[in-house]
C-alpha cells in the first residue's frame, strides 16, 4: 500500500476552499510518509480543476470526466473511488468534511470495510499512522483517533488547516472511465437552489454573531453591518433563531454550525455551553455584552462591557475608517 490520496471537491471548474486545505494537509502527510501525493478530480468538464490541483502541489492526478459525476452523487462517485482504491491500494485517503466529503468518505469506508475517522481538527503522523485530534461529547472533550489497519480514511474539518498555496506546478492527469452508467444510478437530482449571497459560516475567517441581546429582527442590522464591513459572515445564537429574528442557517452552536474563524465577535450573547460548543475553536473571540458577568467573557480574548447598540456601530465606523471603506 502506498500513496496519499486527496479528494478534490469542485464546482464550476474551481477547487473548493475545503479541498485547498485538504491538499495542504495531504502534502505534509505525503512528505512525512515519503509517498506520492495523488489528487482525485471527479466531475464534468474538470480539466481546469486538474490543472489547479497540480498548481496546488499534488504530484499526480487521477481524473474522471463524465456527465454522471456532476452534480455530485455518492452513488456515482462512491463506486468509482472504491474501485480505484481496490486496484491501486493507496495508504491514505483524505477528504474535506463538507456535506459531500462526509458522504463520500462514509460510503467508501462502508463499501471497502475500511477504518474511518471524521472531522479531524489536527493531524500528525506517527510511525506511518495518521493520528487525528477530533472533538467528541458535544465538542466538550477531545479524542485522538486513528485507523488501526489497512487504508486510513480521514476527513478534515473546514478551516482547521491552512490552505495549500499555488506552487506553479503543472502536469498531465491520468483520465479514467466512470464505473457506473446513468441508468444504474437510482438517485436523480432534479433541482438545485444555490445559497444566496453572503459568506458561508463554515468558510468564514471572520464571524460577527448576535444573540438575544439584539432584541429583535431589526437589532441584527448593526451586527450585519459590522460583518459586511469586515467581509465576514453573520452568526446567531439559538435564542435569536428560536425567536424568529434570523433564519436557522445562521445558528452557531451544538445544534447549529461548528465554526472556527480567525475572529469571532459575539454581540449580546451570554455564552451558554451549547453556544460555546460551536465556536470554541475560534482563534480570537471578542465579546460585547452589557453584563460583566456573562460567561462569554471567560472564553473571550477581548471584552467590552457595554450596550451593543452603541459599541457595535462605533466599531463599524472605526473599521470603516481604518480599512478605507
Amino acid at each position: 500500500m502506498s500513496g496519499v490520496w486527496v479528494w478534490i471537491e469542485n464546482s464550476n471548474g474551481a477547487v473548493a476552499a475545503i479541498s485547498r486545505e485538504a491538499i495542504g494537509v495531504a502534502r505534509t502527510v505525503a512528505n512525512e510518509l515519503s509517498e506520492e501525493l495523488v489528487g482525485l478530480v471527479f466531475g464534468h468538464q474538470v480539466s481546469d480543476v486538474a490543472d489547479a490541483a497540480f498548481d496546488l502541489g499534488v504530484d499526480s492526478v487521477i481524473g474522471c470526466d463524465d456527465p454522471t459525476l456532476a452534480p455530485f452523487r455518492v452513488q456515482a462517485v462512491g463506486p468509482l473511488l472504491a474501485q480505484l482504491v481496490q486496484e491501486r491500494e493507496p495508504s491514505v485517503l483524505l477528504l474535506g468534511d463538507s456535506t459531500r466529503g462526509n458522504d463520500l468518505a462514509a460510503w467508501v469506508a462502508a463499501e471497502l470495510d475500511a477504518g474511518l475517522v471524521t472531522d479531524a481538527i489536527e493531524l500528525k503522523v506517527e510511525d506511518g499512522t495518521l493520528k487525528a485530534t477530533r472533538a467528541v461529547y458535544a465538542n466538550k472533550l477531545l479524542s485522538t483517533a486513528f485507523v488501526t489497519q489497512g487504508l486510513q480514511i480521514v476527513t478534515l474539518r473546514s478551516r482547521a488547516f491552512p490552505q495549500a498555496e499555488p506552487t506553479g506546478g503543472s502536469g498531465s492527469a491520468e483520465w479514467v472511465d466512470a464505473v457506473v452508467a446513468e441508468d444504474e444510478i437510482p438517485a436523480k437530482v432534479t433541482g438545485f437552489a444555490a445559497k444566496e449571497g453572503g459568506v458561508s459560516l463554515t468558510d468564514a475567517s471572520i464571524i460577527v454573531s448576535g444573540g438575544r441581546g439584539v432584541g429583535g429582527p431589526e437589532g441584527f442590522a448593526p451586527v450585519r453591518e459590522l460583518a459586511e464591513v469586515l467581509g465576514g459572515a453573520l452568526g446567531a445564537s439559538r435564542a435569536a433563531v428560536d425567536a424568529g429574528w434570523i433564519p436557522y442557517e445562521h445558528q452557531v452552536g451544538q445544534t447549529g454550525k461548528t465554526v472556527s474563524p480567525d475572529l469571532y465577535i459575539a454581540c449580546g450573547i451570554s455564552g451558554a455551553i451549547q453556544h460555546q460548543a460551536g465556536m470554541r475553536g475560534s482563534k480570537i473571540i471578542v465579546a460585547i455584552n452589557k453584563d460583566p458577568d456573562a460567561p462569554i467573557f471567560s472564553m473571550a480574548r477581548y471584552g467590552i462591557v457595554g450596550d451593543l447598540f452603541q459599541v457595535v456601530p462605533a466599531l463599524t465606523a472605526e473599521f470603516k475608517a481604518r480599512l478605507g471603506k
Partner: peptide, 9 residues
C-alpha cells in the same frame, strides 16, 4: 473495529 478512539482528554 479498525479504529482506535480510546484516548479521550
Amino acid at each position: 473495529s479498525k479504529v482506535d478512539w480510546s484516548h479521550i482528554f
